[in-house]
Each structure stands twice: as C-alpha cells, then as structure tokens.
Design a protein around this nucleic acid. Structure first.
Lengths: 338, 338
DNA sequence: CTGTTAGCGCATTCAA
DNA sequence: TTGAATGCGCTAACAG
C-alpha cells in the first residue's frame, strides 16, 4: 500500500510535508505543493482513513438504524440520510433492527466498536432506552428519528402522529363514519400511542363514543392477527372504516379484506399513516403522508450539528409537517349513500 | 476512552494479555481470563476497530453501491446484503449512484480511503470500467451485481435478462399481440441490451417482423420521454402492447397512459421487468420477477468468499432464476377479443 | 516554510 | 503462561 512515506521519499521531503499538502494545513510553498500533488497522482495514493481516524479520534462515519429498509417510508428516509451524509463528507453505515431489541443491541455493539461519529436512531420501542444510554455512556451523539423514547432527552426529528391521526379520523367522520376501528402498531412504540391518542381525540371532538372493541394492537411490520379482524367484523355493530397505524398494516388489511370478499371502499373505508413509495402505480390509499426524505436529511443535519457542537446545548426537536391526501380507499359508509 | 491498557492496569497484567483474551488467541490461564473479562465488563470496554483495522489490514466493512435504494428491486437487494453481511460479521457501507458516473466515482474514492474489504457493485453503465479498474489496482475485491461491465472479468451475480425478456414478450405474443413496443433503459447498461436481445429473439422465434420504430431507449430511473410515446401511439400501425425495461419505466408509462385516457390492459397491455415491492396492495403488473433478496445475499456471500480466498481462482458467475408472473396488466389485444 | 518527535489503540514476534 | 518491543499510517505540537 502506498503511504505518505512513499510519497515523501519520492519527493525528497518529510512525511509531514506530505501530510500538510493533503490536508491543506500549514504553510507550504506552491512549488512543492504541486510537485507533491503530482507524485500522489502518479503513485495512486489514497489516504488511509483508518489511520487518520485513529489519531484524529473521528471516523467521518455515521450510522443509520431503522426498523426495516424494505418499508418505503424508511427507504426514503435512508435516501435522504445518505444524500445528506455524502454531501457533508460522511459515510453511512446502515442496519435494520426489525423492531427487535436483540438485533438493535447487536447493532449498537457493532456501532460502538466502529467508533462512528454519531447515530441516527429509529428506536425499536420504548425499551430501547438502555441502548441509547449505552451510546451516551460512550459519548456517541445520536438523534432520534420518528420515535420518541421515554426518559431519553436528546435531539429528535419526528412527525406529529397525534395530529396526523386526528386529521385522518376526522376525514372519516366527515364522510359520515361513526364506527371507526384502529389497527395499530405495538403501543410500546411512541408513534402508535400518539396515533391512538389522535384517534381518541377526533372521536371526542365529534361526540362519538369510544369503544375499546374497535381498537386492535398489532405491529408495524405486517398485518398480524386475522382472528382479531374477524372478531371486529362480527361485532353487533361492526366498523364501517378502519384507520391503519401504518402503510404495511394497511396493505395487509386490504389483502385480508379482499380474501373475505369485502370491497374497499364500498363496504369498508381504509386510511393509514405513511405513503407507499414512489413505485406505486395508482395511488389508492387515503393517507397522512410524512416527508420521509426530509426526515432522513434533517436527521443527519441535526446529528452533524451536534457532533460539531454547532448547536445550542439544549436539545432540538424538529417536527416535520404531514399532509392529508384523500384518495380512493375512503368514502362515505353505505348507509349514508343514495 | 477505555483502552486495553486501562484494562491491563486494572488487572495487573500487560496489555498483551488483555489482547489475547479479547481474541481468544495464545494460552491464557482460565483464572486470569475470567478476571480480565469481568474487568472489561465493568469498565465498558469496547475494542477500537479502527486501531485493529490498522494493524490487521482489514476493516470488516463491505460496501454496497447501487443506483437507487428507492427502487424496490434495489431496496430488497440491500436488505439481503445487509442481513448476509451482518450474519457474517461485516458492516455495510452504502451509497446511491443514481446511474451517474460522477457520483459513482465520488463513491469509489470514498470507498478507497475507507479501506473496505470489498465492494458489491451495481455499475452505472458500461463506462464504469475505469472505476472497477481503480478498485482492482488497489486490490479491493469486488463482485458485480445485476449488470455486466465489458472488459471486466470478475465474480458476478445476475439474472438472465435475455431469457426473462423473451418470456415476457412470448407471453404477449401468445395473447395475440403482434405490434409490441419496448421502452428500455439506456443501452449502455448491459441488462437493457440483453432485454432488447430477448425481445428480438422472441419476435424472431415467432416470425414477427422487427420494427425499429417500436423500440424506445430511455433510462431506468423514470419514464423520461413523453414525446416519444406520442409518436409511438400515432404510428400508422400503433403497438397493442409495451414491454417496459423495468418497474419504474412501467409505472411512469402507466401514468402517462392514464393521462392520455388509454386503458390498461384494454387498449394497451403493459409488462415489465422486476416487481414493485412488498408494499403494493393489488399486484397489477405482469412481470418477470427476480429474487432481489438473493441477489444481495448471494453477492455478499461471493464477495466474502473472494476476500477470504475461499474460492477457486476462476471467476464465479451466479445466475439467479427469474419468474414470469402473469397479472392484470396484460391481456389479448382488442382486435382478438369477442 | 519544513522537519522531528511522539502517540492514537491494537496485535505480531519473540523472549522470558 | 505472560510480557517487551515494534510498527500499522497518520497528524498535532513544536523546533528549526
């Protein structure tokens, strides 16, 4: 491997001089600068960032931990994060936790030994606290993404899940629905709690009685509990609309509904959080769409600000706006139609 | 930061002894081993992989370069790659090239200085050759993913684009189509050439005359040329079916077709390469689906085999099977229907 | 403007 | 079974 010493020897200077032209630091005469640059070119020299990291105590690497890159929301987050990191001169290490604490722990261990400069962290659940404390103990800055973790004060970028859920449910109410079910992610995830709170608020604001039988808790990874759905449909007064906690739940739900011969939106309206990605042909779901790309880009921005100490000591909390997009998966209930 | 020296001091041994228990190398008495382990626990010691990399000359990091993580095909590739890498004890650095040679070059430079142990590389185009030669000059093993690059001999995992295209087009022919257009990616990408070849072969095998007016070259990132589409539709004998080079082209095409009031599949059948991801509700496109997850996992596998010298010196070429999935976007042409 | 010294955290080699 | 010396490639701090 070519090192600064090889360059130095070739150029009849000391290694230090070479180092200085690499980093544009110190005073070097223009003559020797171009001469050394030329030699570096010729010898295909590339600085070894491991060695540099070791002495500088920084790696210029960030890591992104998300539940699942396969979810279009996080795919786009990742793209935003990668673009921002690249633009600011950082590399991005990434990992999927599948909302599993044990995978998350594995990943945190990896991250610690890699000495990344910071972590953009979308927590598996409320129980991720210890992992974050581990990071903090090792003085690795992190920014929370999307999900709040109780007891952890830090920078964070998120959407407003409560407000988004409220908008979605009020849209259903405005269409005439009164029996509205929720199929939610695990309540150990902050966004799921907030979405439930938004749902409840919408009902209350519209004087619709809450009915716990209409509230199902599953997980964000997929539609998980067919039996629960059947029970929902066999209620004396079944729901005419469902608010799905995220896109994956909504997709799974629709599939089940199709299997059961229930038409959407004719017999059942379905709305959900988060869009389905750029590749979808005929946008179908009524959703609250969050600016996923911004989530990632802004997260990296906050993280780097924090790393560089370019921020105020107080924690920053950025809340990105979401947008209600009304499409074909929701309509007035049968009973209210001509 | 806690180092082996801190541990050593605490345990009244030399740093080397600590190093040996960390790596399970050399002979250490069981007593001191557990004692040192305990102290490492207590002091929250985590080995510094930068320092280790520097001496061992390996980073246990791999990098994945793809055109765009936002494309569901590559999203799934990335997931397969990350899982495989993690399982085998490697971290994954990732980057998007957007099929741009200059972004690709930037990324290659980053990768060189990071001293990753290997690169899983989905080339921007035929012109990526120099980038690969750069990697080779620096003795960084790589495996090509999905796309062949002329003049570069190496390990590779790919699908059979020609065969897949042939199946797709023969399906259309079997349905009665004779005027079949192609909207393809750039012909500087190997898969686009092979898909075109498969198309041509299918026509020839069925004695259908080739017509260059039916062949459009765009790019894989999106549907790019509306004017060309109009020309296609205004041909004296317009196509009754289109073979789209990939999923993004197909999605863009459908959108345009909808705008123009052309119904799919009634007035125009559309088929394409690659599926649209797990999040799609109602699978619609007739596609040739490739096992994207395997692409990623197998790519990492080959790469690590190569790194470890666990392979034969000859280059390996793994071709993953693809599957024709017939769905609603294709049907018999109007002229052939009752 | 340029060079010398020292050390980042760790593992290999060889000696004790 | 353990330890001392050495070096991986680089840069900060200082000396010339």
């Amino acid at each position: 491997m070519v090192t600064i010493y090889d360059i130095a020897k070739q150029a009849n200077v000391s290694a230090m001089t070479v180092s200085k032209v690499i980093n544009n630091t110190g005073k070097i005469s223009e003559k020797t600068r171009v001469r050394i640059k030329k030699i570096m070119e010729e010898m295909n020299y590339v600085p070894n960032s491991m060695a540099r990291s070791l002495v500088l105590q920084e790696t210029k690497m960030l890591s992104l931990l998300i539940p699942d890159i396969t979810n279009p929301f996080f795919t786009t987050v990742a793209r935003g994060a990668e673009d921002a990191a690249m633009r600011l001169g950082y590399k991005l290490l990434f990992g999927n936790s599948d909302e599993s604490l044990s995978k998350e722990k594995e990943y945190v261990d990896m991250v610690l030994s890699t000495r990344v400069d910071g972590v953009l962290f979308s927590a598996a659940s409320d129980l991720s606290g210890p992992h974050l404390e581990t990071l903090r103990r090792h003085k690795i800055p992190f920014v929370l993404l999307d999900r709040y973790v109780p007891g952890i004060d830090c920078d964070m970028v998120s959407g407003d899940s409560k407000e988004g859920a409220r908008k979605l449910v009020e849209h259903l109410i405005a269409q005439g629905h009164r029996r509205i079910a929720v199929i939610n992610g695990s309540l150990t995830v902050s966004t799921a709690r907030e979405r439930l709170a938004g749902y409840r608020e919408a009902l209350k604001l519209n004087d619709i009685p809450a009915d716990d039988e209409l509230i199902l808790e599953m997980n964000y990874k997929q539609f998980a509990d067919e039996a629960a759905l059947r029970r929902l449909l066999e209620l004396p007064e079944p729901p005419t609309a469902v608010f799905a906690g995220n896109n994956f739940i909504a997709v799974g739900l629709i599939r089940k509904l199709l299997e059961l011969g229930i038409r959407v939106p004719d017999q059942m309206s379905v709305v959900c959080f988060d869009d389905l990605g750029a590749s979808v042909i005929d946008p179908f779901f009524t959703v609250v769409s969050q600016p996923a790309y911004q989530f990632g880009a802004m997260g990296i921005q906050l993280l780097i600000d924090r790393i560089k100490g370019a921020t105020t000591p107080e924690w920053k909390r950025v809340v990105l706006p979401s947008e209600l997009i009304i499409r074909g998966s929701s309509s007035a209930p049968e009973s209210k139609r001509a």
